[in-house]
Amino acid sequence: MSVEPEVPIVQVEEVRENPVLYKIISSDNHVFTISEHAVKLSKTLWDLITNLGLTAENALDNPIPVENVNGKNMETIVQFCERHKYDEEEPEYTNYIREFVLPEWDRQLLSIDNEELFQLILATNYLDIQKLMDYCCRVIGDMAKDKTPEELRIIYGIPTDAEDDALERSASDSPGPSG
């Protein structure tokens, strides 16, 4: 799989305005190119770039390995960061985060199965991309809207108290590593 993300038009403008591009290698050895404005959305990556002293001259010759994120998630993350690299900061309003509506483009990007979403959230947390974290969490929050406890158990895989007790008992009954 060659996971070179499609270069959106905004990235072409970015190249013209600001030619600094970075290379990132995912855990399964896929290589991604990301612009400076986009990579700044990830606190982890930007700290790494700063600490490594990467500059416009040497950035493309020094790909950054990210061992905790696979190519599939990295592709989504790069697309997201390129899309949102020029966004203004969100308002500092306590309830803003609960009231904002996920834009359609992002909803489509995050229309993935639950296992993928789970992994994407872990990757987002590792790369410290607050905006993507907010958007992923909004998807999770929307799943819970107007649901009863029974429905939530199914959506979030929540065992009943009886099932939790049974699991706990079987865990304590099972022999340890020494047999």
């Binding site: 639950n114 789970f118 799943m143 895989g157």
Partner: peptide, 9 residues
Amino acid sequence: MPLLLSQFP
């Protein structure tokens, strides 16, 4: 498949 909420940190 459910989204296993309890397994997040």
